[in-house]
Design a protein around this nucleic acid. Structure first.
Lengths: 245, 245
DNA sequence: ATTATCTAGACGTATAGATATCTATATTAT
DNA sequence: ATAATATAGATATCTATACGTCTAGATAAT
């Protein structure tokens, strides 16, 4: 043991990962620079080589490092943090950017699933779903209209709550409490125009650009927990995603 | 050694991964089903437990499996293949779906980088970039207009080629040949309206919805190799992305 | 009945090697 | 000079083993 003491129960590879991440962030390890070899790092940190690899592998997934077989491990030039393309809650995201986010629930009802929704949520076509229509504002400006559908079978106790008590901000943590932690989402994205109805609700012009998302949210085990149509104001909303080859 | 013989130079963990992937695809391993324990799999495949984990870890990244500490490894319910959100070439993608793709080069020039482009490509503001404006068709329908900018410094020999010889389809393989294999892209997506100029070029109505992408493509080492404005026909083009929490 | 504790099984972390393969460089042979 | 070859260093793959931690269920104590 040398640099890294086993304080608390934090795994060694996590400490190594964070130590390297910090060294990169601080500029101690410069862009494009070659890291010490895995053997060397193992010696420096006083761990085995496999443990070093476990740490660096995480940073490679994050896009901070890359390896060249037979050559070495290097710091990537611009740091594209994978964080920029992670699944986030509207409110989490707003918080982080210091934006005041608010949601107003327009409708809250239990209905039969449409074929489209049933297919997305893996339900029988006659099953019930909870429908929540909500309007989201960022700094008092209406940005998004959500039409969310949730399997009634999985979250029936949610409708026990009063409408004004209901907290759309913590919908996902509610899923988690019920044993379905939100893990991933598949989103189909399109450009559309606002029709009369949408324009009225969002207080924009009919024919204004709308970034339309059709999103299915899945729990850890792959259970679909939410299917949502999102209508985002085109001039107020953009989406950044990172794709790998 | 049992199931998996070391034919060729394919790593064991890759064989295990693909064997499991095939078993999942064929339904031999059912959705939601628990896999044999890691120890058992190691015995079955005649390898060590760590090798099994290397294989299953890949499938977890792909979203086909998930682990529960102290419980086991399971097959996810619907199979969201990560492939749906990987960075693909317009032509590769069309090929796979049996669509006839074609690109027409409208402009091909060397210009000074604008501040925006210079920033994205990490260039000095006076540096040269190669500008390629191209129109992409899928089954004879115009779908996308591309404005691509490439650092002249890195790929100067590309302009030696004749314009009609130039193959925009293999731009990325050209990058690769020059030592910059395409690795990742950051895309900012917006909904916009077609202006007069764009409408004319793409033969659509002014005011039609456009899915606008601002994309920076990076090589393995993080070098930006391409910055592109993409204007996609809203009614012909949608984008599917998978996000993880 | 309810609560606390034990325990078996499974994944999580970590070690200390061994061998293979790849890359860049230096050396040698032509 | 040029091309083939050797070599050193680095990552890639893999083994066998050990102990930690978590979960679910069984058992025991209250």
């Amino acid at each position: 043991m040398s640099d890294i003491s086993n304080t608390e129960g934090i795994p060694l590879y996590v400490k190594i990962r964070e130590s390297l991440r910090q060294q990169i962030a601080s500029g101690e390890l410069e862009r494009g620079q070659k890291l010490p070899s895995e053997d060397e790092l193992a010696t420096q940190f006083g761990v085995s080589r496999m443990t070093v690899r476990q740490g660096t592998s995480d940073l490679i997934d994050d896009g901070l490092l890359y390896r060249r077989h037979g050559v070495g491990t290097f710091v990537t030039l611009p740091h594209i943090e994978r964080d920029h393309s992670r699944l986030t809650n509207f409110f989490e995201n707003s918080d982080k950017h210091g934006i005041h986010a608010k949601a107003t629930i327009l409708e809250f009802e239990v209905i039969h699933a449409t074929p489209m929704i049933a297919q997305a949520l893996l339900l029988e076509s006659d099953e019930f779903v909870i429908h929540i229509k909500s309007l989201r504002q960022a700094d008092e400006v209406m940005v998004t209209l959500h039409d969310a559908y949730i399997p009634h079978r999985l979250f029936s106790e949610m409708i026990q709550e009063e409408l004004h008590d209901f907290d759309v901000q913590h919908l996902w943590s509610k899923f988690e409490k019920n044993g379905y932690p939100v893990k991933r989402a598949v989103q189909k994205i399109e450009a559309r125009l606002a029709d009369q109805e949408l324009a009225k609700v969002m207080q924009i012009q009919a024919g204004a650009p709308i970034l339309f998302k059709e999103r299915t949210v899945y729990a850890e085990d792959g259970t679909p927990v939410e299917f949502t149509y999102c209508y985002n104001r085109g001039d107020m909303y953009s989406l950044t995603v990172i794709l790998n080859r």
